[in-house]
Design a protein around this nucleic acid. Structure first.
Length: 254
DNA sequence: ACGCCCTCCTGTTGGC
DNA sequence: TGCCAACAGGAGGGCG
């Protein structure tokens, strides 16, 4: 992928989370991929003239396929490479996005205000302590706020809080210093383990090679409502917070 | 600045 | 079996 040239960008469906700019194929055709990066959940393909930003949304996936592989329903664009392969984006719900910027991608409006990465030194317990003070919002919703910390989606928010033994409905400001420190460690641990397992396949998620992620087998609470807690045996509870499902153990998490 | 709620879209699941 | 509502991995935006 890296150092490959983009032969063409073929867009089959422009109606993604943000409409795909019609100028995009011409802007990236013939460009070399100088580097591949990531910021929060945006994939960054660094080209000579700018940067392609790809977001998978909830149901998107990106796979490397042979360029002549027949298209399937919900295949929305192909980044065709000079290796006779294509980076193919499929997304039934079309919550994903494809953007291009000629400027520093960090200054793109969608990236400029993003919080530190969980593995950055800047995301430490002092930082989380500071941003949780005076916040009335529930801690689970706070750690899913990408303006405060990025990368923590609905699954990992429940899992991190379980591991930190903090009830998801607690107001952020009620956390003690010790709990904040524990939560920073838990967020990092959960994400590190999930990455190692290849992610979490609930239904149809696959990686670029088509393989599912195996972290689902290691989930302690997510999607386990009514089942016994893996630590204490108490029935795991399900509830809704901010229109998202939340799972927790009422005994382990306080 | 903050918190709450809505929205985009399609596919699957579960209840009746 | 069929129908329909609820729900699903994200996150920007509007409003009070």
């Amino acid at each position: 992928m890296r150092h490959r040239c983009i032969v063409a960008l073929e867009v089959y469906e422009r109606r993604l989370r943000w409409p795909v700019a019609s100028s995009l194929p011409a802007a990236v055709a013939g460009q070399r991929i100088n580097g591949i990066g990531r910021r929060a959940k945006y994939l960054l393909l660094s080209l000579e003239a700018g940067t392609l930003l790809i977001h998978l949304g909830m149901s998107g996936n990106l796979r490397v396929v042979k360029a002549d592989e027949p298209r399937r329903p919900h295949d929305h664009f192909d980044v065709v490479l000079d290796s006779h392969h294509a980076l193919r984006f499929n997304d039934p719900r079309r919550f994903g996005s494809l953007l291009f910027t000629r400027a520093d991608p960090a200054r793109h409006p969608l990236l400029a205000k993003l919080a530190p990465e969980p593995f950055d030194a800047a995301f430490d317990s002092e930082y989380l302590w500071r941003v949780t003070r005076k916040r009335r919002v529930a801690i689970k919703q706070l750690i899913m706020n990408s303006h405060l910390v990025v990368g923590v989606g609905n699954i990992y928010a429940s899992e991190a809080l379980f591991r930190a033994r903090i009830a998801p409905g607690r107001r952020a400001a009620s956390l003690t210093r010790a709990e904040v420190a524990q939560l920073v460690r838990a967020v990092r641990a959960v994400l590190a383990q999930a990455i190692r397992a290849g992610g979490t396949t609930l239904r149809d998620y696959v990686g670029a090679d088509g393989a599912p992620g195996y972290f689902r087998q290691r989930l302690y609470v997510y999607e386990r409502g009514g089942k016994p807690c893996r630590r204490c045996g108490t029935a795991v509870r399900a509830r809704t917070q901010g229109q998202r499902s939340t799972y927790y153990c009422p005994a382990c998490q306080t």
